[in-house]
Amino acid sequence: MSNIPENLRYTSSHEWVSEEDGVYTVGLTDFAQDSLGDLVFINLPQEGDEVVAGEAFCDVESVKAVSDVFSPVSGTVVEVNEELADAPELINDDPYGAWIVRVGEVAEVEDLLDAEGYAAVCESEA
């Protein structure tokens, strides 16, 4: 059973989201990192990039797979976790610590799931 903290919100495409003062922090869930396996590379966006709710803004690679990361919000990237560029395995080690981007100037937020709703999604895909 994967770890799904109660204090975060989720998308059905396996991103987690937290919000503070209008800035949204986005990362990949424990379930996502576990299904992808050992990550070897992350193709990060740049600060200042516009992201659109429901569209891919980044991709992550394992040895034999590549997977898009979708933005739960529309807005502007205000910070990128550059540490991941050299160590994508941080997402495997600590998915809820290894945030990917922070998005500000948010114009739109997708309908997000709570922990219970997201647990149901994981169960259906397991």
Binding site: F41, E61, K64
Partner: peptide, 13 residues
């Protein structure tokens, strides 16, 4: 190595 760049994994991307 670095195979995730390639067509057999990335397909249309």
């Amino acid at each position: 190595t670095l195979q995730a760049r390639e067509q057999h994994i990335r397909r249309e991307k």
